[in-house]
Nucleic acid binder design. Structure first.
Lengths: 149, 149
DNA sequence: TTAAGTGCAAAAGCTTTGCGGGTAG
DNA sequence: CTACCCGCAAAGCTTTTGCACTTAA
């Protein structure tokens, strides 16, 4: 993410914390900054590893807990994918995904027509929809080559 | 899933196994049948529990392994969702999802406009897209009530 | 007969919880 | 001062692996 966008997100983080009376700790700030710097829809463990380069000895627990907090505050989201690990997405605005159904890779894409999709009425299901996302599912290059080889 | 559709899928299962020289075992057949009977996008463990009512003492390992096999054969798929557990989807044809970002519930929906989406060229990413799916992300009724309460 | 599947036990990987001590506001 | 956060250790899930035995074809 570019520097300006990162800066804006950090400011958003500070004002939300002030609003809610949540302490701003070094750990939280660095975990957010680090997550914003990674574009692979990383797992909590991958984020922990990256954060540890700046805060030696930071605990996994703190990273797991903080990521959940950041999601709750709306500063990051969870990525939808077929695998069995939670993965985080630094993008909170409307966007879409290429998803590899073999290795679970997730790649961001943009598409105006996807953005403009009309959202049907879902009140019959009791759902309140806040967001939509198109997933193009298939195989990434690496997995396709393994398949053929 | 209705009986006719289930029957068709089981026949498909048999012919694919014959084609590839894979043995048709009782376990595999019952695991497939059971998965086709569940509409909650169940986890492997939930499927194991349901299968165990018909095959007492069936091992978790077998269920985990067989589900992966069935996915590879194209008889079921994995559901994309934000949580940290693998979940299976009995539907293999084009369809879409409501996803609760709090509790991870996944509900099937149909929408012709979603079906008809034009798929952009993704060759630049090396992906081969075989399928697409729209996810309407939000909160389910239960989670919304908890939120407010 | 033979390639493949099954079950068990154990290991590995991911995530949460309880609690004592520390820190931002 | 007080509420909330952090780190540790331990527990709890979920999933995979190696191996000996069994079974479909």
């Amino acid at each position: 993410m570019d520097e300006a966008a990162t800066q804006r997100r950090l400011e958003q983080f500070e004002s939300i914390c002030h609003e809610r009376g949540l302490p701003i700790t070094v750990q939280r700030r660095v975990i957010l900054e680090t997550t914003l710097s990674l574009d692979n829809h990383p797992t909590a463990d991958q984020i922990h590893e990256a954060v540890a380069e700046r805060i030696a000895g930071i605990s996994r627990t703190t990273v797991y807990r903080t990521l959940e907090t950041l999601v709750r505050l709306g500063l990051i989201t969870k990525a939808c994918h077929p695998g069995g690990v939670t993965r985080y997405d630094r993008r909170i605005e409307l966007h879409h995904h290429l998803v590899c159904m073999r290795c679970d890779a997730v790649v961001d894409i943009s598409d105006d027509r996807f953005d403009a999709l009309p959202i049907p009425d879902t009140s019959a299901y009791g759902f309140e929809v806040s967001d939509h996302q198109v997933q193009l599912r298939g195989l990434c290059k690496t997995c396709r080559e393994k398949e053929e080889g």
